[in-house]
Write a protein that binds this DNA or RNA. Structure first.
Length: 493
RNA sequence: CGGGAUGUAGCGCAGUUGGUAGCGCUCCUGGUUUGGGACCAGGCGGUCGCACGUUCGAGCCGUGUCAUCCCGACCA
């Protein structure tokens, strides 16, 4: 194995470092020279674009429309909702001036002090405030509701420590913001969008998720309820992969969004917001990758099938080109993305390793031997199995194989996750085992004190109260008091 | 903002008691190769983070400063 790829074997030693190098080597993204920011490279962005397209269609099926709101938020907007500002104040980038000027030595620029803004502008950390300030003008009657908007944009949160895709100062996401006439409708919408996220994660990303509701301390700033999908990474840590918030009337009241209901009585609008970000890329990478690099589920792979010809001279290459052409055409007719890599400046072995590193689900290899025998070598990325098959019926076979891979990577991830979910009611045992990762289902008395103690002792947090776990009576493993529910506890990213 | 470390070629690093900078990878050129990350030969590439100081002389010593990374606190 080439020296620079030794990192792939280090996975169990230092998962963070391994992840970081994989992201860079697979050509997904790299750290920008700008503090805490990330450059998403074309290959990584192609995956994100596929995610965007699928999610966007799913949103629209539920009646959501896209819109766009400003990047800059007047400082005063942010302070209108007390909990919201408290949650975000510490990580906001602030615009204070609108002009630069040449410095005294004429070899650079300085901020022009005379161009100080009367009111500072905040670069959005999330857009509830500016959107609800706008909704005030859009909502007057119950007939204006529900209002269902989504925007695809970037946001900025000045994080202390950043990691590619998982936590960067600037990140790309979508944020949906809905307004409703009734509490019931808003709550239903918040849960509906969580279901959309869960379906997307499992069906397309092949990432199994636990759906649930956050504890009060983990709740979004300004929300009454925060719903979440939690995925398990291969080191056993949890990754919050999407959230949907029921915001009650908090923002309706803060921004004075009132409407007249059917009884001609004024009422504050009910709100939800929900979002997923480029963090999903991190989930995708950390759920499926192996020692050969990335493993992409076919539904999201920018290249689903790569064809590598093996040739010794131009004549052979010509023959292979001709033999391969109908296969490519047929695959593309089925909507399959195919790359035919007949570049002469790289050797086959290099190509094999490179496409494996990039997670291409299926590889077809054709050489002079195959031309004689009418065969082709098929390799599937998820299991790395190779087989020689007849060219006859190869297109239909590959199509089925892609479906099989999509299903298999999900089943594999599901199996891994389920094998690392434990029921545990003994705190000493919990403390010992949680270090090694995994999800723990534990009885909880519902108090913030217990939550804080667990975090202090083990760095683990309550990820959520899962929806699909049968709730049995029990006692809190820390306090010994009667438990209100069984919660999911894990260390997380 | 606390605790620790590091800044030398695009990347990863070495550089001895202070004497004017080197190795591997990458990249470029030529040739031979091509069924699992090729080999040989030649070549390009550096204000040693920045500033000041000590010295005949600083990558190396001193002071300051900036930046980055790791461990905490904070987080989609």
């Amino acid at each position: 194995m080439a020296k620079e790829l030794d990192f792939l074997t280090k996975r169990s030693v230092d998962y963070s470092k391994w992840y970081n190098e994989l992201v860079v080597k697979a050509d997904l993204a790299e750290q920008s020279d700008v503090r805490g920011c990330m450059v998403i490279k074309p290959y990584g962005y192609a995956i994100w674009e596929k995610m965007q397209r699928i999610l966007d269609d799913m949103f629209k099926e539920t009646g959501v429309q896209n819109a766009y709101f400003p990047l800059l938020i007047p400082k005063s907007f942010l302070s209108r909702e007390a909990e919201h500002v408290e949650g975000f104040a510490k990580e906001c980038a602030v615009v204070t001036h609108y002009r630069l000027k040449t410095n005294e030595t004429h070899d650079g620029v300085v901020v022009d002090p005379s161009a100080k803004l009367e009111e500072e502008l905040i670069i959005r950390p999330t857009s509830e405030t500016i959107i609800w300030n706008t909704y005030k003008n859009w909502i007057h009657s119950y007939r204006d509701l529900p209002l269902l908007c989504n925007q695809w944009c970037n946001v900025m949160r000045w994080e202390m420590r950043t990691r590619l895709f998982l936590r960067t100062s600037e990140f790309l996401w979508q944020e949906g913001h809905t307004a409703h006439a009734t509490r019931e409708e808003a709550e239903a919408r918040a849960q509906q969008m969580l279901k959309v996220y869960a379906t997307f994660a499992e069906k397309y990303m092949a990432v199994p998720v636990v759906q649930g509701v956050k504890s009060e301390t983990e709740r979004f700033a300004g929300a009454l309820d925060t719903y979440t999908i939690e995925a398990m990474m291969q080191d056993g840590k949890a990754l919050q992969s999407g959230t949907s918030h029921f915001l009650g009337q908090n923002f309706g009241k803060a921004f004075d969004v009132q409407f007249l209901n059917k009884d001609n009585k004024p009422e504050y609008a009910w709100a939800t917001s929900w979002g997923v970000s480029t963090r999903l890329m991190g989930a995708l990478i950390m759920t499926h990758s192996d020692d050969n690099g990335l493993v992409l589920p076919p539904a999201l792979a920018p290249i689903q099938v790569v064809i590598v010809p093996i040739f010794k001279n131009d004549e052979q290459l010509q023959q292979l080109n001709e033999a391969v052409e109908p296969i490519i055409t047929e695959l593309r007719k089925l909507g399959i993305t195919v790359k035919y890599d007949n570049a002469e400046n790289k050797r086959p072995g290099f190509k094999f390793a490179d496409y494996e590193l990039k997670g291409v689900p299926v590889r077809l290899v054709l050489g002079a031997r195959d031309l004689e025998n009418g065969t082709v070598e098929v390799m599937r990325r998820d299991t790395l199995e190779k087989e020689s098959r007849s060219l006859e019926g190869i297109v239909a076979y590959v199509k089925d194989l892609l479906d099989d891979i999509q299903n298999n990577v999900f089943q594999k991830a599901l199996k891994f996750r389920d094998e690392h979910i434990y029921e545990c009611d003994n705190y000493e045992e919990f403390k010992e085992r949680v270090k090694d990762g995994g999800f723990f289902l534990c009885h909880w008395d519902g108090t913030a004190e217990t939550e804080a103690k667990i975090k202090e002792d083990t760095q683990a947090t309550i990820r959520c109260v899962p929806f699909n776990v049968e709730q049995t009576p029990g006692v809190d493993m820390v306090s010994g008091k009667p438990a209100t529910c069984r919660v999911l506890i894990a260390r997380s990213y």
